[in-house]
Amino acid sequence: MPRLLLFIPLALFSILILFLWKGLSIDPRELPSALIDKPFPAFKVEALLSPERKLTTADIVGKPVLINVWATWCPSCRQEHEQLLRIAQENKIAIIGLNYKDDRTAATKWLTQLGNPYQFNIYDESGMLGLDLGVYGAPETYLLDAQGIIRHRHVGVVTEQTWQELQAIIKSWEKL
């Protein structure tokens, strides 16, 4: 028995190593969304390109969609724009833009110059819908199912790899 006790420090050390090892692959900047598996917050906000049109939750439910939070002041949004255009071209899922705390003229210019991957854009000038959604920095991308429930949040640039991950989630729904 006393001989076994001598192994206690080794065991404790191994546990510590395990935790540290796990810690290497955790990004502390990536926060879990508080709204996962919760419905997209209710809203009534103008559309970016047609201000007279009021968008509501009814416009985003019915089929799975990607909600992409972007702004012209956000360099990473420029970086992911090509990828968004590619996703839009594949036509597997609709992308809806959430133009976050932006200037309407600048945003409109951005879309005409760089191409428009969005079905439509919610013009969240005050950032209050973003606040309800728990947005803490653009770009962020949310995957909603057909019922408008938030299933996944991606913080940062959408890359080809992100798109593969998102597709895997969508595919897992189809199997059900």
């Binding site: 926060l31 879990p32 969304s33 508080a34 309800d132 959604l133 728990g134 803490y136």
Partner: peptide, 8 residues
């Protein structure tokens, strides 16, 4: 705040 940003 917690409802939107979590316990964080």
């Amino acid at each position: 705040m917690v409802a939107r940003y979590g316990e964080f």
